[in-house]
Design a protein around this nucleic acid. Sequence first.
DNA 1: ATAATAGTTCGGCATTATTGAACTGTTGAA
DNA 2: TTCAACAGTTCAATAATGCCGAACTATTAT
Lengths: 103, 103
Amino acid sequence: MPRFTHPRLEDVPLDLALHALADPNRLAMVARLAATERLSCTDAAPCESIPKSTLSNHLKLLRAAGLIETTQAGREMINTLRRAEFDQRFPGLLGAVLANRPA
Amino acid sequence: MPRFTHPRLEDVPLDLALHALADPNRLAMVARLAATERLSCTDAAPCESIPKSTLSNHLKLLRAAGLIETTQAGREMINTLRRAEFDQRFPGLLGAVLANRPA
DNA sequence: ATAATAGTTCGGCATTATTGAACTGTTGAA
DNA sequence: TTCAACAGTTCAATAATGCCGAACTATTAT
């Protein structure tokens, strides 16, 4: 049973947050979660072609950056954006990034 | 004589810009340039301990991300932030990043 | 000319990222 | 119940990046 560790936002350095967002696939996942609230890992995936293990790693990185929270629900893992906490930690950052994301 | 290539900002993808900013040393350099306008490479360096070749690479990356412009002046290279252009390309992004940078 | 300065480039090593394969745990069906 | 399918994770090997010492280029000063 996977037990996920979620950092306190005050322990997340800016560099880590930027690095997490500095990848097209991860950013696409964040954008999806910003729009859809709750998504399983596969549903959060930006496309079908990305391997499961890669997807899992991306989500782990997003967790470590304080961007998402993952909880188990049956056999799927439900991911949600930690929007309020992240915005409090890094005011304006996520908004600016999402606003500048290519369509 | 090094001839630097500076991308058009519309050709800079968001990922590249974020990646350039997602490093403490590079971000510190950007912050310096935001405060000081014109700096040679060594003056832009965040600390004395960082090797020249590493510094040069960081600056190359910042150039590629459209963040700085480098011109030769005698034997030094003068770096300036392409602030207006960058802000036009990614509104609010650099401001948010700099505002959230640790002291 | 020579030496010092400012920085780039190159090449090798170290770190990080990607991904197939094997594994854990959960649900639904026979 | 067992069995198979499903959702994801973990591991290990390979691929791709990053870092930095050493050698190099160009400029200025002596």
